[in-house]
Amino acid sequence: MRGERRPRPQVLVALCAAGLALLNFPLLAIWDQPATVFGLPLLPVALFTIWAGLILALALVSEGDAAERGAPGDGTDAPDGQEDDRP
């Protein structure tokens, strides 16, 4: 049961709020510049980078964090979850 607590709901809600803020007005306007990154227009590069960052954060919160933090009382659940998830 305790294994189901991870990832922690507060962290997920915070990430979602951050994502909503980063991908909308007014923060979106920051990237609306005529500049280029490695020859690519800034706006799409920024959007895809934010997107990838959110995926990475979610992956870390869901996987790495769960394995490391699974110490107290979670010992039985964490390995199960990991094994089940393996393709």
Binding site: R6, P7, F48, W51, A52, L54, I55, L58, A59, S62, E63, A66, D80, G81, D84, D85
Partner: peptide, 19 residues
Amino acid sequence: RHIRRAAWLFPLYLLLINI
């Protein structure tokens, strides 16, 4: 339990198909 991994694999899929 699969939801935990699928939740970030699915957006990754969307990212890849949009690149």
